[in-house]
C-alpha cells in the first residue's frame, strides 16, 4: 500500500514550502483538490493548525524517490484565496481551475482562472456544502379544471 506523508502548512508559507519540496525532488504535481468543511468543522487536525472552512489538498510525487507527499492548507471562509502553483508545476493549471470552479477557491496569479467544467456565468460553486441542490417541489396531482 502506498504510504504518504501529510504536511499541514500555513497559507503564508505555502508557496515557499512547495518550492522547497520541488527542489527536494518532488517533480510532479499529481493532484490539487479542494474540500469545503462547512458541515464537518470538528475534524482532526494536529495542534496549532487553525481550521479554516476550506482546505486545499495538493499531492506531490517524486519519481526518483518513489514517494508522495500530501499538503493540506487551511483557507479561511472570508478570504478564499491561495497562491497558484502554475509557475512551479504548469500541470496544476487545469486542476486549479477545477478547484476554483467547483469549490470556489481563487488562485492568485493563475494565468487563466476561468470555469472549466461548469458553463460560464454559472452561479455559485457546486461542491460547496451550502450550494443548493436545486430541488424543486413538484405537484403530481392535476389541478382542478386544468384539463
Amino acid at each position: 500500500m502506498i504510504t504518504s506523508e501529510v504536511l499541514h502548512i500555513e497559507r503564508s508559507n505555502y508557496l515557499a514550502t512547495v518550492t522547497d519540496l520541488k527542489s527536494q525532488g518532488y517533480e510532479m504535481c499529481i493532484d490539487v483538490a479542494g474540500v469545503d468543511y462547512l458541515t464537518h468543522p470538528g475534524r482532526e487536525l494536529p495542534e496549532g493548525v487553525v481550521p479554516g472552512r476550506y482546505e486545499v489538498v495538493v499531492n506531490l510525487l517524486s519519481l526518483g524517490n518513489r514517494s508522495r507527499v500530501r499538503i493540506r492548507v487551511q483557507v479561511p471562509e472570508d478570504d478564499p484565496t491561495i497562491e497558484t502553483l502554475f509557475f512551479l508545476y504548469p500541470g496544476s493549471e487545469a486542476m486549479e481551475r477545477e478547484v476554483y470552479d467547483l469549490v470556489g477557491i481563487r488562485f492568485k496569479n493563475h494565468p487563466d482562472l476561468t470555469r472549466i467544467l461548469m458553463p460560464e456565468g454559472w452561479e455559485g460553486h457546486p461542491l460547496r456544502k451550502d450550494y443548493s441542490m436545486g430541488a424543486v417541489p413538484i405537484q403530481f396531482k392535476s389541478v382542478n379544471g386544468a384539463g
Binding site: T114, R115, I116, E120, G121, E123, G124
Partner: peptide, 13 residues
C-alpha cells in the same frame, strides 16, 4: 443573484 454571478465568474473560457 447578480452579485453572485459577477463574484463567481472569471470570464470566458
Amino acid at each position: 443573484s447578480l452579485a453572485l454571478v459577477s463574484e463567481t465568474s472569471e470570464g470566458p473560457q
